[in-house]
Write a protein that binds this DNA or RNA. Structure first.
Length: 304
DNA sequence: CTCCAGGCGCCTT
DNA sequence: AAGGCGCATGGA
């Protein structure tokens, strides 16, 4: 196969200049790849034979990680790894982010317990569509629905021959041409008309997902909230996981549990109170803090 | 069997 | 403004 057996060494995207190669190694600190890929922000990564297989845009990629590096193997030679370093935010200094968190016991516990958890920077359409499918579904089920959607509507893309064929995430135009029945056949139930209508809105140009990047977060949120099937929680997921707005703070059942249990253990806090708290307590990177609280409650502290 | 899952939209107060 | 309910599907 084409992949070289000796990955080129790159400390960051900027220094990765060894020409075309099908693999590259990036040195990282505070990066738990497994936790990040399993934390419910992305739904297409698969653990197989000691590595993570996935698709970023139209590129299949396989990843291996150890404590200090991530090595990526592509199906075809790559001259510029920016698409990958951007997706994984390789060059982000997490300690600088953590320094902006409030210095309180719950955040300290969550950061300590989930050391290395990172936010990805995903494609807006894939993120939007995936989270429309997420409502009242468990993460394992969201994965299954998204996988079926990609197999049936996504473009086939090259993958390493020893692995299963790969598919890009379906374009808005392709899903806009689907029928509601075809989408329901992917087990998405009542979410099918929401996904279909949103795909059509994007295709018809009623919303420009690229333009949202340059808007203030509140305006970008309002645009997303106009889409069918998109409420505050899903809008904030897209604002945080795709656009990287640092104060987008998705509040779901797990985050409510975390805030209630960790910050208001004695008295019952109303949803409005928790919302206000989430918007004022966690600082300029509150979205990152949210992901730590979510993951901490879901994997370590709560489980119930 | 019942309960609930990284909610939303719509209908009541 | 705030609260209740139905919506598909499947796992616990």
């Amino acid at each position: 196969m084409a992949a070289s057996s000796t990955p080129s060494k790159c400390s960051s995207a900027a220094t990765c200049t060894e020409g075309d190669a099908a693999s590259a190694t990036f040195s990282v600190r505070d990066y738990d790849l497994a936790a990040s890929l399993e934390s419910g922000q992305a739904f297409r990564w698969q653990w197989l034979d000691g590595g993570w297989n996935g698709v970023i845009g139209n590129r299949w990629v396989r990843l291996r990680a150890d404590e200090f590096s991530i090595t990526a193997y592509a199906a075809e030679p790559v001259s510029d790894w920016n698409w990958l370093t951007h997706y994984f935010q390789i060059d982000l200094d997490f300690s600088a982010v953590a320094a902006t968190f409030p210095d309180d016991l719950p955040i300290r516990a969550a950061v300590s317990a989930c050391r290395g958890l990172r936010l990805l920077r995903q494609d807006p359409w894939e993120c939007l569509a995936s989270f429309i499918l997420s409502s009242t579904k468990q993460i394992v089920q969201i994965r299954q629905i998204v996988a079926m959607l990609c197999e049936r509507f996504g473009e086939s893309i090259p993958a390493a021959p020893q692995f299963a064929p790969a598919f890009a995430f379906p374009t808005p135009a392709r899903l806009a041409r689907a029928t509601e029945a075809e989408l329901r056949a992917c087990k998405m139930g009542f979410r099918a008309p929401y996904l279909l209508a949103t795909a059509r809105s994007v295709t018809e140009g009623k919303i420009d997902l690229e333009r949202l990047r340059q808007l203030p977060v509140e305006i970008a949120r309002d645009e997303l909230l106009n889409l069918p099937g998109v409420g505050r929680k899903i809008a904030d997921c897209v604002l945080l996981f795709a656009y990287g707005f640092p104060t987008a703070f998705p509040v779901d059942v797990w985050v409510i549990k975390a805030l209630q249990k960790l910050y208001f253990p004695r008295r019952r806090a109303t949803a409005k109170r928790l919302r206000h708290f989430s918007e004022t307590h966690f600082g300029p990177n509150s979205g990152y803090a949210q992901q730590y609280l979510f993951h901490y409650m879901r994997t370590k502290h709560g489980k119930r």
